[in-house]
């Protein structure tokens, strides 16, 4: 859902974020997950798991998600999380 595609989401950096998060989600939920799966609507991510997802994302990519970025839509899909990480890192820098 609502994952707007921009020029950064096709880069190797984006691919790495996407793969890492998909692997984490599939391991934890034991369900197939796509980059555009709505994680909340599908019930895959419980509230307890949600914070773990956030911590995993921060730890894996060395970013801190704070203030206005702490909103549901940024975590709704792997695609949205990928965009968030790339933006917090200052674009496709690596």
């Amino acid at each position: 859902m609502n994952a707007s595609v921009n020029e950064t989401t096709g880069t190797p950096a984006a691919e790495q974020v996407r793969t890492t998060m998909l692997e984490f989600l599939e391991e934890r939920t034991r369900q197939p997950v796509e980059a555009d799966t709505d994680l909340f609507a599908s019930g895959l991510v419980s509230s307890m798991f949600a914070m773990e997802l956030l911590v995993h994302l921060e730890r894996s990519f060395g970013v801190a998600v704070a203030g206005p970025d702490l909103k549901l839509d940024n975590f709704r899909t792997v695609e949205a999380m990928t965009e968030l990480v790339l933006r917090l890192r200052g674009g496709a820098d690596d």
Binding site: A50, L70, K71
Partner: peptide
């Protein structure tokens, strides 16, 4: 921060 997130 996080205002508007679900309570859980």
């Amino acid at each position: 921060g996080g205002a508007g997130l679900p309570i859980e």
